[in-house]
Design a protein around this nucleic acid. Structure first.
Lengths: 211, 211
DNA sequence: CCAGATCTGGAATGGCAATTCCAATCTTGC
DNA sequence: GCAAGATTGGAATTGCCATTCCAGATCTGG
């Protein structure tokens, strides 16, 4: 059983110290470019310039552009989830849910609603283009949804949420509201839609709260 | 009031009968390709082949690729709104809202959850790429949201919905749930997320219904 | 029917993107 | 410290794409 684990990433050991640094620099530059201009709008020469590396370095570390894109998907998922912690891991009250969503709204306002959601944008662009990216992004959304569901489940276990509440469905609904709200807000350049969307779903969750 | 209509497209008169037909064929082919492979994944030669036209015809009718994309945005908006009628114009009961959303879910299931929402996909890909496309898509979403809000407003005017309900916010929330649900469903290849998302928001709307 | 405009075919152009290659230069385990 | 392997630079290759051009065919109003 551990054989398969070792096979998963055997070449990781072959990365030297400066190599790891270069690899990381490439991913960060690519993630930034792809967030602002889309995957299709980001060329390898663009990444070269932004990361100050040569073409051979990119191909050395990622094989081809698809490989780089997959690395960016992982990076953005880790980054986005990390930046939401510790709020994300403590979504076990209505107030916590609201505060968490408000934080995202304020951050979006701060950047002028440019760019939408890092993961959602990648998902939309890659879903029909790159099958392995699609499955990776499905995992990303699962990782995002899990702490929401866990928080709701904890509320339910504590008896604060009705047994009739389907916490899995509610977590999915909230994530969907976030994604759809972000998209509308990006297009409209106003977080109003995002705020209305998450507010509606959280209000609905609140209706299951046991007074 | 009809003056503005005539001013809107003054060169339309210069399109000859076969010209209009060719133009339409190009748009339909481009819309289909861009839906399945994205705007960036659709080249002019691709459109040429699919529509059986020469390059000069595309440039004759649309100027450049951006012009074609804008035409596709308009076409997809008109098409999507039309295909939802007459349900879309009669969203003035909870049952009507549910039936309308179910129809979309069933259609999505029928195509294996491939492609997501025609408008949402364009929006995500073009929002930061093409400013005029972004504003066009903002209008598209407005056109979509309006009949939802109108239906809710009618319910409220009839006294079926509490005065405390913010019908504009609720309409936005439902549209966001649709978009986010579609995106999650596209990535997961299952309409479960879409169904949960719209169900949550419609349940919330129902909480404002006056028994 | 005919003149002017529209429409069409197909080749040419110029640029850029993805990828490859190879030689030279570091890093690291031993 | 030294070999083996990792890393890097930069040019070269190949192919495709957006766009242009122009000549010939077709259409439409009068």
């Amino acid at each position: 059983m551990n054989a398969s684990v070792e096979v998963e990433k055997p070449e990781r050991r072959r990365l030297t110290k400066p190599g790891r640094k270069t690899r990381e620099r490439i991913i960060e530059a690519a993630a930034d470019l792809m967030f602002h201009h889309g995957v299709g709008g980001t060329s390898i020469p663009d990444v070269q310039a932004a990361a100050a590396v040569s073409a051979s370095q990119i191909y050395h570390y990622f094989g081809d552009k698809r490989g780089l894109v997959l690395a960016v998907v992982d990076f953005q998922t880790d980054t986005k989830l990390d930046q939401q912690r510790p709020l994300l891991d403590n979504l076990d009250s209505i107030d916590a849910l609201r505060a968490w969503c408000d934080t995202a709204a304020d951050r979006q306002d701060a950047m002028g609603c440019v760019g939408g959601c890092e993961i959602g944008s990648l998902a939309s662009e890659l879903a029909e283009t790159d099958p392995s990216a699609r499955t990776d992004l499905a995992v990303s959304f699962d990782r995002w949804e899990l702490p929401i569901r866990s928080g709701l489940a904890r509320m339910q276990a504590r008896g604060e949420l009705s047994e009739r509440a389907d916490v899995a469905a509610l977590a999915t609904a909230l994530l969907a509201a976030i994604q759809g709200g972000m998209l509308l807000s990006q297009v409209r350049r106003s977080t109003t839609a995002y705020r209305h969307a998450v507010s509606a779903v959280i209000d609905h969750i609140e209706s299951y709260v046991i007074a």
